[in-house]
Amino acid sequence: MNVGETVLQARNVHKTFGTKGSAQHVLKGIDLRVTRNEFVGVMGPSGSGKTTLLNVLATIDHTTDGTVLIDEADISKLGNTALSAFRRNKLGFIFQDYNLLDTLTVKENILLPISLSKISKRKAESEFTAIADVLDIKALSNKYPHEISGGQKQRTAAGRALIHQPSIVFADEPTGALDSKSASSLLDVMEKVNQQRGVTVVMVTHDPVASSYCSRVVFLRDGKIYSELYRGDKTRHAFFNEIMDVQAVLGGDHVDGF
């Protein structure tokens, strides 16, 4: 695998919500390059535009200005069908609010992304078993979303994001509703997927422990990139301390500015 090759690139990305009178400029010129096999963390105060950035990068939302390239291709030039197919086959999402289908069981939800692919039922079943085992949700297979806890929903969402072996996974606070033990097991899974299968991960998080799993952490503030940290050869603990230092400067989660 060609490490160092650019898979995802944002050039001067702007995003504005609302119309002229009440326009809200959320992303103000983001430049970001993600190389294959990277595990990128995105941190920043609430409302700083992390989810918005993730959506734009993941082709779910359009930019107001600037370009997003995936595998060198400008996604604004791709047609709707091509984009859909791309998302379906290459991308995995863990949404901040899970977005499970209420009418489907845990297992049906997880299997949804491969429902249209030509994978044999046996293969799909073994994929499911593998993922459900790691995420510890095997016992919940036949339960409906309203019958399970927030953390269990989050793990189900993670299962759905990984089942079809995407090449990039976008995760929006995947550990937000998890206790530290389940959080670290999910992060272990993501790390494993990242290192063994070469899956690129972009993860938004508030939690410095979670971002210490990353190979790089990007700090967002007021719609701009404030700073970046590379883990390099540092231990996770050392990296964690560094992240804490930047966060202290950046201000707490709930402080939007000085």
Binding site: S84, L100, T103, P113, L116
Partner: peptide, 18 residues
Amino acid sequence: QEKQSFKTLRQLGFDVNM
């Protein structure tokens, strides 16, 4: 009621016709 499901499905890459 299913609006959110449709949104999720579209985000997962299922297009309108599917």
